[in-house]
Nucleic acid binder design. Structure first.
Length: 507
DNA sequence: TTCCGACAGTGGGGTCGCAAT
DNA sequence: ATTGCGACCCCACTATCGGAA
């Protein structure tokens, strides 16, 4: 199959806003692709590369060679060149990558270049990723979408699952099972504004657990072989020896456990997320990193205990199995209650101890791998500040032509404003239109084509999760997960919150 | 007919490791 | 030694479609 076939299908998918139409376009192409190219086609059309990452990003794709006029590149040829690009390493590798990239792009027509460039950057923007591709695979193969989805959660890689479905139908999909040593897409949580709201949504007694601000881990053990994966299914076994040892020390030898690793201070309070994250990312001298920043692990779920798969069992049953496999000190603190007051007390206690909040779990829910099901609901405290808009950046995609990303400043009592970060979240289309007009009227200083500086006159209420240390911003601090709540036309900039107020929240 | 679950898109800050400068 | 880049850790929120109610 030719790359141009995929580029055309992708364009058709992007042109139709209806999901069912997108599915039809994708399924039609999947019906034509041969078995040896099915995996590549499914990957490309769901916005993934079979190589996962290439070492090529936005910067390497800035100036591309002139396109050709005739479309002749096959999927196999493109895939082969991408494989060679990924394989480059060591001194001279960046030049070698660039040379291969130029060779590849010089063999493509303009629409192919556009498609592949977006794909490599991870910005296909055709309105179809895994969720839509699952339906397309189901339609093209005749297998129920639920079977495709289940195989995906067990295998973690849709192109492989889709190719199997196309060649072997439902039978092939059922061959995907939970395999120790191969990560499963982790279950995700929805969020709620309060514990009461979360309990209400679950509608009855629920299990509450501390939400630790660390890195999600899935630990597998078969005999003495232990492996550890992140939320995105990256293998981090070598970076977390403490966790490997802890799992190896358990009495049961056939396990898949779900939990969180976190760096704790000697007094038991959590280190800032930055510390845990940096420790987990350290690869070059793990022994040294371990001495300076030891990790603790807390488990909250079990997908397999003593050789038995638990995915389809209710949460309370899985937790009972977890408690059987793991000593109490490795369990995430948990309270089962239907009482709102007790639940709120548990939440308050977790937050006072420095943790992020709680996750409220429905006791009857199975492990909904890879989905943000209603079974888990996270609750975190929300802070707000009234800040001043210092500038805005032009948006992209559906925000093209709108001023989108806001630069936020706190008032400096000595005069002026100190930038604390940016946000694009929380804005409705109506607000985007309004602020674009308003900012252009307030514009000042030279425009660089990307950022519009504005006179600091607009006060905006910003919600955020916390204040973190920053080397990027002049005040030495930045907001975590900042989002717009509303504009405050009733406030003037001299009524905005001060840098001191923000600093007092950094503790 | 209305409601709501699931998805995709639009970007945020921080850190590490590597190659180039 | 420093800088730029890519990859990946954490993520919130809105708009939209289409099946459920």
């Amino acid at each position: 199959m030719l790359l141009i076939d995929l580029a055309r299908t992708s364009a058709a998918v992007a042109a139709d806003s209806a999901r069912l139409a997108k599915i039809r376009h994708l399924a039609e192409l999947l019906g034509r692709v041969g078995p040896d190219e099915a995996e590549t086609a499914i990957a490309y059309l769901s916005g993934e590369l079979p190589q996962r990452q290439l070492g090529v990003g936005f910067a390497s794709l800035r100036d591309l060679p002139e396109p050709r006029l005739a479309a002749t590149a096959t999927l196999s040829r493109v895939d082969g060149l991408l494989r060679r690009i990924k394989a480059q390493s060591g001194p001279g590798s960046q030049a070698a990558r660039k040379a291969l990239l130029d060779e590849l792009f010089a063999s493509l027509t303009r629409p192919e270049q556009t498609f592949l460039s977006r794909l490599i950057r991870g910005e296909l923007r055709q309105g179809a990723l895994d969720g839509v591709m699952i339906e397309a695979v189901a339609k093209a193969s005749g297998a129920p979408a639920a079977e495709v989805r289940r195989a995906l959660m067990l295998r973690g890689w849709l192109p492989a699952v889709g190719a199997a479905a196309l060649s072997g139908g439902v039978e092939a999909l059922r061959a995907f099972t939970l395999e120790v040593g191969r990560p499963v897409s982790p279950m995700l949580a929805q969020s709620a504004p309060s514990v009461a709201a979360a309990l209400e949504r679950i509608g009855g007694p629920a299990a509450l657990e501390w939400k630790l601000d660390g890195v999600r881990v899935q630990a597998h053990r078969s005999g003495d072989a232990v492996s550890v994966f992140t939320r995105a299914l990256e293998d981090i076994t070598a970076q977390v020896p403490e966790l490997v040892e802890a799992v190896r020390a358990l009495p049961l030898t056939d396990l898949v456990l779900d939990g969180e690793v976190i760096a704790l201070r000697p007094d038991g309070r959590p280190e800032p997320f930055q510390v845990t994250s940096g420790r987990v990312a350290s690869r070059t001298d793990v022994a040294r990193a371990r001495r300076s920043t030891p990790l603790s692990v807390f488990f909250f779920d079990a997908l397999r205990v003593d050789g038995a798969d638990l995915l389809d069992l209710p949460d309370d049953t899985r937790h009972a199995e977890l408690a059987r496999a793991v000593p109490a000190e490795l369990l995430t603190p948990r309270l089962v209650t239907g009482d709102v007051a007790r639940a709120e007390e548990f939440f308050g206690d977790a937050v006072r101890r420095g943790h992020e909040g709680v996750v409220v779990k429905s006791p009857g829910s199975p492990y909904a791998a890879g989905r943000r099901g209603a079974g888990w609901i996270k609750v975190k405290p929300r802070h707000t500040l009234d800040l001043v808009v210092l500038a805005a950046e032009w948006g992209s995609g559906r925000r093209e032509g709108r001023l989108s990303n806001l630069h936020l400043g706190a008032r400096d009592p000595a005069g002026g404003f100190v930038m604390l970060g940016k946000t694009f979240k929380g804005l409705t289309d109506e607000l985007l239109a309004w602020q674009t007009e308003r900012f252009l009227a307030l514009a000042e200083g030279p425009a660089d084509g990307w950022t519009v500086k504005v006179r600091p006159e607009l006060v905006v209420e910003i919600a955020f999760d916390g204040v973190q240390r920053s080397s990027r911003y002049p005040g030495g601090m930045a907001l975590r997960f900042a989002r717009v709540v509303r504009y405050r036309p009733d406030k003037t900039p001299d009524q905005a919150d001060t840098v001191e107020t923000v600093r007092s929240l950094m503790l």
